[in-house]
């Protein structure tokens, strides 16, 4: 239980660091550490499948995407130049929030866990995915298609861009 709570405190500190970081690369790397922490917490909740997915997709794939985008930028853009005052105030605000939510949120959920809920049969994971939630799989196909077409149309060349590109090329020639 101490391990569990220590992990929670760790990911909160890491998340705060990721938000406050000046460098984009640093921020993305810290975010992947947050993902690792989250997946360790998922292991303590006895849900290994979700933890493995979190570890491979969020900590691995998304971090790789973030870093490859950062590498497209020139070096001087990698630093975030915006006013730091708000970010330095953030931990203070968070501390105030922490005190307030200790007073309100904990009793709130304390009461909640005593409330009677529906009796549930804990079916095996495969049966839930393939029998009870088939429609979700169709939804995933749909969202996958949406993502692919969205990215294709975003990077397809439009007429305006093509015209300017052509004029640039011809201007270069003559």
């Amino acid at each position: 239980m101490t391990y569990h709570l220590a992990l929670f405190i760790l990911i909160i500190i890491l998340a705060l660091a990721a938000v406050m970081a000046k460098n984009m690369l640093f921020s993305a790397l810290i975010l992947s550490l947050v993902s690792v922490g989250v997946s360790l917490i998922l292991f303590t909740f006895a849900s290994p499948w979700a933890a493995v997915f979190e570890l491979s997709v969020c900590a691995g794939l998304i971090t790789a995407l973030f870093i490859s985008v950062i590498n497209l930028m020139p070096k001087e853009k990698k630093l975030l130049n915006e006013s730091r005052l708000k970010f330095t105030l953030l931990p203070v605000v968070l501390l105030i929030m922490a005190v307030i939510s200790w007073i309100y949120i904990v009793p709130f959920f304390e009461y909640l866990s005593k409330h009677p809920h529906l009796s549930i049969h804990n079916y095996p994971l495969g049966q839930i995915i393939w029998k009870d939630r088939v429609f979700d799989l169709i939804g995933q196909i749909c969202i996958f298609a949406a993502g692919v077409f969205a990215i294709k149309s975003l990077f397809a060349r439009s007429i305006n861009e093509q015209k300017s590109h052509k004029s640039q090329v011809t201007g270069h020639k003559f």
Binding site: F135, I138, G139, C142, A146, A150
Partner: peptide, 28 residues
Amino acid sequence: SAMCGIVTAGDFFTLYIFVEALAITSLA
């Protein structure tokens, strides 16, 4: 197709998946 999914969804999670799909397409 995403909107048809939204109106035929039977729980909040299915609704959520199709809403996300719809948001991505309308974004593009």
